[in-house]
Amino acid sequence: MEIKFAEVSDASIIHDLMIKAFMEYKDEVPPSSALEETVQSVLIALKDGEQGLISYVDNEPVEMVRFQLNEDGLYFYRLSVIPEKQCLGIAKKILMSLEDFAIKKEVTTIFCKVRMTVPKNIKLYSSIGYGVYDEEVVHKPNGIDIKVVSMMKKLS
């Protein structure tokens, strides 16, 4: 497996991986907003300073994560593993690469948010040292509320 930093030209790869991974949430109420994103919205985000990592197996993209650095630390989102590669430990590998990058940038904290209706993701992050530090209800414009946990990991 090879993990590479995303280029702006990788917007369609990032979008494709994200849609494949997030399709499992299409029947959630509401469905993940990841499914509403377009190649164009990903491209704009990358041009505006968002970063990403993409994992390749046999030169085929299988996973990605998007992230931003800010004054509080590194915030990642949209971690996406294609369905046929899920539960093989590769999500942990890309998160380890993200941690290595953060440490090189002298960032001490990594953050993410997870829907409470997706306990497998909370369990994944907890298994590698992330802890829940906040719970909130996100109010969507359509009147639907989503319960979310904020998780973080301190890096040494």
Rank of each mutant, 00 (worst) to 15 (best):
P119I: 01
K85E: 14
E136A: 01
L69D: 08
Q40F: 11
Y75L: 09
D134I: 00
S126F: 00
V114L: 09
E60K: 13
M64A: 12
L155W: 11
Y77R: 07
D100L: 12
T38Q: 08
A34T: 09
M116E: 14
M116D: 11
M116W: 00
N121C: 02
D72V: 04
V42G: 02
V57A: 11
K104S: 13
N142L: 06
L74P: 02
Y25Q: 03
T117A: 14
Q51H: 11
L53N: 04
P119R: 05
V148A: 02
E135F: 06
R115K: 10
G129Y: 00
I14T: 05
K85N: 12
T38K: 02
C112A: 07
K105E: 15
K92I: 00
L69G: 02
E50F: 09
K20V: 03
R78K: 08
R78M: 04
V8Y: 12
G49R: 04
I110L: 15
K113T: 13
L79M: 07
I90Y: 13
L74Y: 01
S12W: 03
L43R: 12
E24N: 07
V8M: 07
I90L: 09
K104F: 04
G131E: 13
E71K: 12
L124F: 01
L35A: 05
F5H: 13
E7H: 13
S127C: 05
F67Y: 15
T109G: 07
R78Q: 03
L98K: 08
R115N: 05
R66T: 10
Y125L: 13
I14S: 09
V57R: 09
M152Y: 12
D27H: 09
